[in-house]
Amino acid sequence: MRRFRKNSALAAASLAVFLIVTGCHHKQAAVPEPPPPPPESAPAPTATITASPESFNPGQGVVLTWHTTDATDVAIDGIGKVEPSGTKTVNPTATTTYHLTARGDGGSTDATATVTLNAAPPAPPAPQQLTEADFEQNVKPIFFDYDSYSIRPDAQATITQDASFLQAHPNAKILIAGYCDSRGSEEYNLALGQNRANAAKTALTQAGVDASRIRTISYGKEKQFCTEQNESCWQQNRRSQFTLDQ
């Protein structure tokens, strides 16, 4: 966005320059003058070219700005013939040297600008690139005691980590599902699972995650992560599970 605005400004500036230059030419043409003497020794052209930025990330555009004087024929390798002065956005895919040649009556001059491809992409991936697998790897479930929906100290630590990941991905919506172990009654466990989901939502909200991003549901004992009848299995099932809410 910022780059785009800069482009517009540059484009507007170059347009103004162009108008002034052509305007002068027009005026000169309109006023009859004695024919100029043929140039005996024309000055040599000057040329500069710069690239901004000088190093770029994949997919990022680069703006070339060049300026020449006393040139009649200006070309950039790989782009072709260009105006004597101007700007252009290019999309290189690798480190590239842009070579400008300005030819005039007084000879020719070269100028170059090199843009370098950054080796590593920037650290935080864009939010839309967050996958369910990424989400599950980073947002861990929390576990509960029997017939309880209180957040345990170990769950609070998990919540803190979960919340920091979620705050780094502010566009991700979150579905919290409450689960219960296979003991007890189906309908009561739906209510208990709902309270577990609600407790997890409250904890995330208190850790700074916006409540409007969170939806809750209870699966009670209708879906089980583990089906054996022992405490380690029951503990697996007493949880609030976080998933990316599409």
Partner: peptide, 9 residues
């Protein structure tokens, strides 16, 4: 029926 529309069922 039981409802958690205000939070607690």
């Amino acid at each position: 029926f039981s409802s958690s529309r205000t939070g607690d069922p």
